[in-house]
């Protein structure tokens, strides 16, 4: 059985089901009980204040609690509210947690989930809109995923909670109320498996989260002219390279859309890997649609930097020319 649920409700279901299944799972964050976003709504009534923990505005303390609890065998989900706030305690998340398992002789797993709302489009400016997936992708020892549909959201969150590593899994505010089918039965979306969201023959567009929606809209618009294959990475680390290379065998062209800065992000990483592993498959240079290196502005200037259907279409046309 499957129902249509908003993405945020799919996340809430994942949290509830995993907390019911495993008493080691708990939530820690700020205002989770009163809720800022609806995915934690009512959870304190169901699981109590011991497992739905509100902390002071002390990101390091909040995150450190999760880290220490993970050392002791718990499986915390840390909710930073907005992704930008992970930068307040980036050193803990990225360095202390990500590198802990390896540096300490692969003895102590760190089963932590780090989540937060991200995404430009709300005229909120940098602190409340910055992407985080690229910054964490850079760091060894961390897995990074981001859902684009309610189905993927529930499945990825459940996989992340069951994983024995730190998993950063932000969700895009622009998708919060988007509805889609979500099964009632238990399922996961494994980390490291991309999804071909639309098949095509002329060009591959690799797009995630909100930009996947834009890419699919462009593919539909161009369908009589250019056959666009759209792939959702779903997980940035580990990344499903075989699925991308298989697609390129067919299309020989690649556009990567990523709501993140151009410098050193997911799009750059995958571009380089395609050069190394799939250069002979390419009939045109890999083209990226990303943020230029401009801070995410507030006010009315977000459209200057955000990827959008027009920019995606232009990139598709340029590689197909």
């Amino acid at each position: 059985m499957s129902r249509d649920l908003p993405l945020i409700e799919a996340i809430r279901e994942a949290l509830i089901e995993e907390m019911e299944q495993d008493e080691k799972v708990f939530l820690v964050g700020q205002d989770l009980r009163g809720t800022i976003f609806p995915h934690t709504s009512g959870l304190v009534d169901r699981f109590g204040t011991e497992r739905v923990i509100d902390t002071p505005i002390s990101e390091s303390g909040m995150y450190g609690t999760a880290m220490g609890a993970a050392h002791a065998g718990y499986r915390p989900v840390v909710d930073f509210m907005f992704g930008g706030f992970t930068y307040v305690t980036y050193s803990e998340v990225a360095v202390s947690t990500g590198q802990q398992y390896f540096l300490h002789g692969s003895q102590t797993p760190m089963p932590l989930v780090i989540t937060a709302a991200v995404g430009a489009g709300g005229r909120l400016a940098n602190d409340h809109a910055m992407a985080i997936h690229g910054s964490f992708l850079h760091q060894p020892g961390i897995k990074v995923a981001m859902p684009s549909t309610p189905y993927d959201a529930k499945g990825l969150f459940k996989a992340a909670i069951r994983d024995n590593n730190p998993v950063v899994i932000p969700w895009h505010m622009g998708l919060m109320m988007d509805k889609g089918p979500v099964p009632e039965a238990d399922y996961i979306v494994p980390l490291g498996v991309a999804d071909v969201k639309r098949e095509g023959n002329d060009v591959t567009v690799l797009a995630n989260s909100l930009q996947l929606k834009n890419a699919l809209a462009v593919a539909e618009k161009l369908k009589d002219e250019i056959s666009v294959e759209v792939i959702d990475p779903r997980t940035f680390e580990p990344f499903d390279m075989p699925t991308l290379l298989k697609s390129l065998e067919k299309t020989n062209r690649l556009v990567i859309v990523d709501e993140d800065w151009e410098n050193g992000g997911f799009a750059s990483t995958i571009s380089a890997r395609v050069m190394e592993q799939g250069f002979d498959l390419l009939d045109a240079p890999v083209t990226r649609v990303t943020f230029p290196n401009i801070p995410v502005p507030g006010g009315y200037m977000e459209p200057y930097i955000m990827p959008n259907p027009q920019k995606i279409e232009a990139a598709i046309r340029s590689v197909c020319a």
Binding site: S60, G61, Y63, G64, T65, A66, M67, G68, A69, A70, H71, A72, G73, Y74, P76, S91, E92, V95, S96
Partner: peptide
């Protein structure tokens, strides 16, 4: 924990104490 970042043991300690 034993970190080259001085003072980074205080916050995991909160988690150990919680556990």
């Amino acid at each position: 924990m034993y970190s080259g970042f001085i003072g980074y043991n205080f916050t995991p300690a909160t988690g150990w104490g919680w556990a």
